[in-house]
Computed example of a mutant assay.
Amino acid sequence: MLLGRVATVSACISQRHLPKAHFDTVLALSQWFGACGVQVAHSGTLIGILLDANAPKAALRAGEIAKTATDTGFADVQMFSLNAEGAVLQ
């Protein structure tokens, strides 16, 4: 949870310098679904919503977030999870 809060603060700071058109929508989705936070790529071209993979129904919530984001008009919505070593899990 702390990592998500720090990532969100960093993303908000980035928003002041490199605005993303729909940042507020992503932030609202994150809060609505009880996510850990929001992250933004250094380039400012990608935005992600962080979930705790060990939280109850995390995969279900990830799917709901992806569907809602797609329904809201976001393109190229991707879902993936990482293990502690950073390897992508399918």
Rank of each mutant, 00 (worst) to 15 (best):
K67W: 02
K57D: 15
S14P: 03
S14L: 10
E85W: 00
A41W: 06
H17Q: 11
A7N: 12
A53P: 09
F80E: 01
T68G: 02
Q78S: 04
V6S: 14
L18Y: 07
H42Y: 08
A75L: 08
L3I: 04
N83I: 01
G4D: 11
A28L: 10
C36V: 05
A87W: 00
S81T: 06
L89Q: 15
L29A: 09
L2V: 12
R61L: 13
L60H: 12
D52G: 13
S30V: 07
D71V: 05
G34W: 10
K20H: 13
D24R: 06
F33M: 11
D71A: 12
C36I: 04
T8I: 01
D52T: 09
A75R: 08
S43E: 14
F80R: 05
I47Q: 12
G63C: 04
A11Y: 01
L82D: 00
A59S: 14
S10T: 12
A11P: 03
F80C: 03
S14E: 13
T72Q: 03
A66P: 09
F23E: 04
M79S: 07
A41K: 10
Q15F: 02
V6W: 10
M79N: 08
T8P: 00
L29W: 06
N83L: 02
V77N: 00
D52S: 15
F80Q: 03
H42D: 14
A53D: 14
S43D: 15
V9L: 02
G73K: 02
V6H: 09
A11F: 03
L60G: 08
Q31C: 06
L3R: 07
H17I: 09
A7T: 06
K20M: 14
S81M: 07
H17V: 09
R5A: 04
V77Q: 00
A87H: 02
A28Y: 08
E85L: 01
L46F: 11
I65G: 00
A69M: 14
A21Q: 15
M79T: 09
G34K: 11
P19M: 13
K20A: 13
L60Q: 15
F74Q: 03
